[in-house]
């Protein structure tokens, strides 16, 4: 157990190291001069040289990377080119927004997708299955962007026109200040995020359940005289859970690195929105920080999923 954890954490650290080197060098060779970005078009060549020296970008890249990593290990990711603020706090400030969006959305998409998938698999070939399949098809074929625009139009704009506010158009209220407002503001983003994802999870659940329900132990469960509900939820779902958890871990980790489209559509100042702004501004320290944050989430999610595996499957204990 300890050995396993140490091994996985070591491996994760290695992955992050490679990732950091990769983005660092990638953005180093990208076009654009940070000094000119900071100083503006009117700066003279000597001013620019001075800025480069201050930023340290006149040194060889290996030296720059070494210096960067040295500070990164202490949690210092440098300063934004844009406003000279330290990078780490800028990013950390954004995390609650993205976290709220993703975790709330995940609950919603599981609550919608899993039952639809189970229903579809239980009554395979029937009308209910076809309805489920239609939901999957629709959910998968709508781009998030269109979905977002549609729900904004239908649930914000139209009610607004007839004089009342059903949902706000966006923005974020901290959970700690007012949970109701928090949820109200996130309702539309959650729904938009959940609809596409629910389709993916319905499809996954349906496929898993179709496999599992053909297993011998399901037949045993029925032969014991269990009710069909118990057979499906206790015996079927329990076995279908492992792949769902794996997928969920991967999806949440990926999204915590920023849900770009939805954050843009609803004006949520999350990690994704920050990434978009940073790319537009060529703010390299921020970009590198966001990428590394995404990497950290993925590494953590992998370890968590592996541990869950062990918890879920007594055979690998």
């Amino acid at each position: 157990m300890i050995r396993f954890l140490a091994h996985r954490i070591g491996f994760g650290a290695g992955v992050l190291l490679v990732l950091s080197a990769f983005v660092f060098f990638l953005f180093f060779v990208a076009p654009g001069d940070p000094a000119r970005m900071i100083a503006g078009d009117k700066a003279t060549e000597s001013q620019l040289a001075q800025i480069r020296k201050n930023l340290g970008v006149d040194r060889p890249i290996i030296v720059q990377y070494g210096a960067f990593m040295q500070k990164a290990l202490t949690g210092d990711l440098g300063f934004s080119y844009r406003n000279q603020q330290p990078v780490a706090p800028i990013i950390l400030r954004r995390i609650p927004v993205t976290l709220s969006l993703v975790l709330g959305g995940a609950l919603l998409w599981l609550a919608i997708g899993v039952p639809i998938g189970i229903m579809s698999a239980r009554y395979v070939g029937s009308l209910r299955d076809r309805l489920g399949q239609a939901f999957i098809l629709v959910g998968l074929s709508f781009p998030t962007f269109v979905l977002g625009m549609m729900s904004l139009y239908l649930l914000y704009f139209l009610p607004k026109q007839s004089g009342f506010t059903l949902f706000p158009a966006g923005g974020y209220k901290a959970l700690s200040s007012n949970p109701v407002l928090w949820a109200w503001h996130l309702a539309l983003p959650w729904m938009t995020l959940a609809l596409t994802m629910a389709a993916i999870y319905a499809r996954l659940t349906r496929g898993q359940m179709l496999d599992v329900m053909g297993e011998d132990y399901i037949r045993t469960a029925r032969a014991k005289g269990l009710s069909e509900r118990r057979v499906v939820w206790k015996h079927g779902m329990r076995a279908a859970l492992t792949p769902l958890v794996t997928q969920l871990g991967a999806d949440i980790a990926l999204m915590l690195g920023g849900v770009i489209v939805i954050e843009q559509v609803y004006g949520l100042q999350g990690v994704g929105a920050l990434a978009v702004q940073a790319v537009a501004n060529q703010d390299r320290p921020i970009i590198i920080g966001v990428v590394l944050l995404g990497g950290v989430f993925i590494v953590i999610a992998n370890i968590v999923v592996d541990l869950l595996y062990v918890l879920l499957d007594p055979r690998v204990r």
């Binding site: 297993e215 011998d216 032969a223 005289g225 269990l226 329990r238």
Partner: peptide, 22 residues
């Protein structure tokens, strides 16, 4: 359902796959 398991029991061929692994 009440008969199954209660009045009529069943045993299957492969006991490993017939028992729930979890």
């Amino acid at each position: 359902r009440r008969l199954r398991g209660g009045r009529i029991g069943m045993i299957f061929q492969d006991p490993l796959s017939s028992l729930h692994p979890f």
